[in-house]
Design a protein around this nucleic acid. Sequence first.
DNA 1: CCGTAATGTAACAGTAACAACTACAGTTAT
DNA 2: ATAACTGTAGTTGTTACTGTTACATTACGG
Lengths: 139, 139
Amino acid sequence: MSQSCRFTVAVHTCTLLGLETDHVLTSEWIAASVNTNPVVIRRILSALNKAGLVCSIRGSNGGSTLARKAEDITLLDIKRAVDTEGPIPLYNQPPNEKCPVARSMQPVLRRVIERAEAAREAVLATTYLSEVIAAVPKV
Amino acid sequence: MSQSCRFTVAVHTCTLLGLETDHVLTSEWIAASVNTNPVVIRRILSALNKAGLVCSIRGSNGGSTLARKAEDITLLDIKRAVDTEGPIPLYNQPPNEKCPVARSMQPVLRRVIERAEAAREAVLATTYLSEVIAAVPKV
DNA sequence: CCGTAATGTAACAGTAACAACTACAGTTAT
DNA sequence: ATAACTGTAGTTGTTACTGTTACATTACGG
């Protein structure tokens, strides 16, 4: 696998939570649907919790629920919660400062890449969890 | 580094080639500007060559040049040339087929992610190498 | 036609990120 | 008290990528 699938699992998890609003779901139950280890789910849930998207109840009969309505959660909310990406490093080692081209490449590239990222995020920002839930057959 | 900077290096390389159209540049020269190993540059150039973006001349006095005008090369061309990404796997292990939600998550997610990717690529597709070159001070 | 300078690749080590897993401490209903 | 569940630290295996060495191939220029 080349790239993180935390986002995928997080949306999957939130979809399950959004479909079962009358009771909490355990990490073990969610893990069975995603087909992974419960700890992986708990890490995702922990991040979603810190972002204020889910509530987790500890102890016996515990589990998680959505903290907000699915209509008020965008996929960008979910992505930001679980993808801990700071400013992307453009180069491994800083380019040669003696080369005038190299000196000015970095800000130019950063501008372009940020514009492209913003376009992608705009799509996620206008896609709501409720839409995903609506596209999934009711259990 | 979390993510590939091949794209960055490729744009850097193409910018240098676009600024020096009267003679070829060697991988060693480009590597000095990027501050990396010549082999890394040659790998990038090889990919750009296969995509028809640069011409490489072997043997003594060899080197590389742009195969097209900078006005006819988009950043998406460059990205596609060096980022060999097939269809992104959404899950590490396929989700539980017995869960109806899990069964339908994959296509739903793929649609959303593809829409978001398309938006990002649209920005790169309308950004031309010539614009990057124009934003860089003439050597 | 020989030496030099360059590309093109293969092979390998080191690093970083991540998933999967075990273990265990903390928490809460029954 | 016990059972059930979350939260998190620590470990392992995998993957991807950069950086590097080594070497074959190619072409110019004397």
